[in-house]
Nucleic acid binder design. Structure first.
Length: 690
DNA sequence: AGACCCTCACTGTAA
DNA sequence: GTGAGGGTCT
């Protein structure tokens, strides 16, 4: 072993012969363990690197792991199978395309495409989009797919009776477009393996060992994929931490950690509880945020400890307004820079991405270099999607959403009516439909369609080979920069983005990748992927900070309704997740933590609201230094529970669920039967006695 | 029929 | 800030 490991880490690296579950706390060196285990297998067990499958949560983590492995083993090539679940699935599906109902060049619909597809379906069915809210429907559909379970539909049978049909039509729309949404990528692998045992076998045979990181944030389908790939062998290690599960809202199922033991008999469990990242003081604040685990989770929960001393207290700072909060952060950063810190040492973590605006403004004013990680991602920008949609469509003319995006872009007089006419002639794809509909169109429309087809034809000829030239051609043929200039005030930024796209495509050319591979990568790109190594302050959501660490961390906006998010008030599980999120935020820090909140905050419409400090602050107030820009700070934080006198039998009212009666209470929660909403467990605060 | 401009409402974390 | 909806102009 080249790197020194502690006893538990070493055990985890050296354990073979039965499945392994590593419960690894924040900062406990789990990446090191996974990397070392890979290196050990290659060096000491003579397993070829490409027979090891390692699945991480982000592309960024995968990339880093690859680099570490390459360095440790002195490889001259990049390991192929260090990847994420979504990329792995896309790879498998392209390789096995002939066994699917898709062709190899299937496209991946991102969230926007999916939502537009749903809107198309709703329009086609003539449904009121007030009742059938596209965003809600997309969520429900995703939930169904993530759990491989349609029973959710029953839940909405009353409010949205047409949901099952929408679901069917949406999937049909995808199939016609040769498109998969994010969930389909995973589901189709499960289907493929279940329906074709010999294919499953061939994939099992490809790998001698499988490792998965961040297991607490895998969903049911991903758990299933793991089971199918491992089969009844024991060559598997998963690493996770139930306390860091922050993605249940998009289908993560922390029970996978519990299920793991059942699905893989004789599982050995190793806990990594020694933290190497944070100081004692930071850890103790973090620990006081997490509520104690109950029931079956009891023995899965970690108690972090550290020998890392540090004089710095964790600070909690109250500021008058959100503006002041941002100013405080900038000033603090500037003064710490004078003490010898680098800009790259800082992260500002926020609960919601729109909170970055104030902070950015103040950093610009102060002249602090910063980078917003995530937010609206590069490939989700309208101008980028526009150009890529042309190429997407040219290479895959079944792609309905790409077609609808570009057919009248820039406006060329092909509107709703013309598209409808063309749709009547749709049989195999939109190019064929355009040709067949051609003679039935008006002279004007014919001319415009002609122009459109010429551009597409050109891309079809050269697109896949010379991506950057093709993109340049599209931009000039459309006079797209001019279009941006006329349409947007911030056109200069957008033009700059287009040029950045050209550069990215140049790189693609250099690396010998095809355009389709590039499209796949871009649609699966993640918030963290944009993270630069530059010496700049990083501003990001707490979610995007998963797995990262920084010497100094600011956590802003600790206000009730913001952090915890207002939506979490309805539901205890969500409130617990907010807690874990706060825990994740604190444990990103190595040396210093500044937690801030504003007593007044402007809403998006400019109104200024009085805020309440986050209820989480109550749990940490004894362990932090409280400061305020007001002389006499009321050191009062919302109690974790206000209505402590609610008892069973009490009649109560809830803002959302209406009237109900309390069945039972425990701690700060009450289980209530509501007249209409049925039985729910609610935090007592959100009940009113009646 | 399509373009364009205005107003209005909404905005959670995301592969 | 963005999209949807409505009204009006070409």
């Amino acid at each position: 072993m080249r790197i020194k490991l502690n006893k538990q880490q070493e055990e985890a690296v050296l354990h073979f012969g039965s499945p392994l579950l590593v419960l690894a706390g924040a900062g406990s060196g789990k990446t090191r363990v996974i990397t070392q285990k890979i290196v050990y297998m290659v060096e000491n067990l003579s397993i070829p690197i490409n027979r090891i499958l390692a699945i991480t949560f982000t592309n960024k983590a995968a990339q880093e792991m690859k680099e570490r492995v390459v360095k440790a083993l002195g490889l001259e090539y990049q390991p192929q199978w260090i990847t994420t679940f979504h990329s792995l699935s896309a790879k498998i599906l392209r390789i096995e395309a002939e066994n699917l109902e898709y062709s190899r060049d299937f496209v991946i619909y991102d969230e926007e495409d999916s939502k537009k597809a749903i809107k198309d379906v709703l329009k086609e069915m003539n449904l009121d989009s007030e009742v059938y809210k596209p965003e809600k429907i997309r969520n429900v559909i995703s939930q169904i797919k993530q759990n491989l379970d349609e029973s959710v539909l029953d839940f909405y049978a009353f409010t949205m009776p047409h949901l099952p049909e929408i679901f069917k039509k949406y999937n049909h729309h995808l199939a016609l477009s040769n498109a998969m949404d994010f969930d389909d990528l995973l589901i189709n692998v499960v289907k493929l393996f279940r329906e074709n045992p010999e294919i499953k076998k061939s994939w099992q045979d490809r790998f001698d060992y499988v490792l998965v990181d961040e297991y607490q944030d895998t969903n049911l389908v991903q758990h299933e994929i793991l089971k199918l790939i491992v089969g009844n062998r024991d060559c598997v290690t998963v690493v996770g931490d139930p306390q860091q599960c922050i993605y249940t809202w998009r289908g993560a199922n922390p029970d996978n950690i519990l299920e793991f033991e059942k699905d893989f008999p004789k599982t050995r469990i190793i806990k990594l509880e020694r933290n190497y990242r944070s100081t004692e003081k930071i850890l103790s604040v973090a620990n006081s945020v997490i509520s104690s685990a109950k029931g079956r989770w009891k023995e899965k929960v970690l108690r972090l400890w550290t020998e890392k001393k540090g004089d710095d207290d964790v600070y909690l700072i109250s500021l008058e307004t959100d503006k002041r909060e941002s100013e405080f952060i900038s000033k603090k950063i500037s003064s710490l820079i004078k003490e010898g810190y680098q800009y790259g040492d800082f992260a500002v973590l926020i609960r919601m991405s729109y909170l970055s605006r104030n902070i950015e403004e103040s950093m610009i004013k102060t002249g602090i270099p910063y980078q917003v990680v995530g937010g609206v991602k590069f490939y989700e920008r309208a101008e980028i999607k526009d150009i890529l949609a042309y190429i997407r469509f040219a290479l895959q003319p079944k792609d309905t959403q790409a077609f609808k995006r570009i057919i009248n872009l820039p406006p060329r007089g092909i509107g709703e009516k013309t598209i409808q006419k063309v749709q009547q002639y749709y049989e195999t794809d939109w190019l064929q439909a355009l040709e067949d509909a051609y003679q039935h169109l008006s002279k004007k429309a014919q001319l415009r369609v002609q122009e459109f087809l010429e551009i597409v034809e050109y891309i079809r000829k050269y697109g896949n080979e010379k991506p950057s030239e093709t993109a340049r051609y599209v931009v000039s043929a459309l006079d797209y920069e001019n279009y941006l200039e006329n349409k947007y005030k911030d056109w200069e930024d957008r033009v700059a983005n287009i040029h950045e796209l050209f550069n990215a495509l140049k790189e693609v050319e250099k690396s010998g990748k095809t355009f389709l591979e590039f499209l796949e990568e871009s649609s699966l790109s993640q918030a963290q992927d944009s993270l630069e190594n530059s010496n700049s302050v990083k501003i990001m959501t707490v979610h995007a900070s998963k797995g990262l660490e920084f010497p100094v961390v600011f956590i802003a906006g600790l206000e009730d309704g913001l952090f915890p998010s207002g939506r979490a008030f309805e539901d205890i599980e969500q409130m617990e997740e907010e807690r874990r999120l706060f825990y994740v935020a604190i444990t990103r820090a190595k040396e210093k933590v500044f937690i801030t909140y504003a007593r007044k905050r402007a809403t998006f419409s400019g109104r200024i609201n009085e805020t309440k400090p986050s209820r989480f602050l109550r749990d940490i107030k004894k362990k932090v230094k409280v400061l305020s820009d007001r002389k006499k700070e009321r050191k009062k934080f919302p109690p974790t529970c206000l209505n402590s006198d609610i008892r069973a039998g009490q009649l109560v009212k809830h803002e959302k669920f209406g009237k109900g009666v309390v069945l039972s209470v425990s701690d700060n929660r009450a289980t209530v039967i509501f007249e209409t909403a049925g039985q729910k467990t609610i935090i007592k605060d959100f009940l009113k006695k009646i």
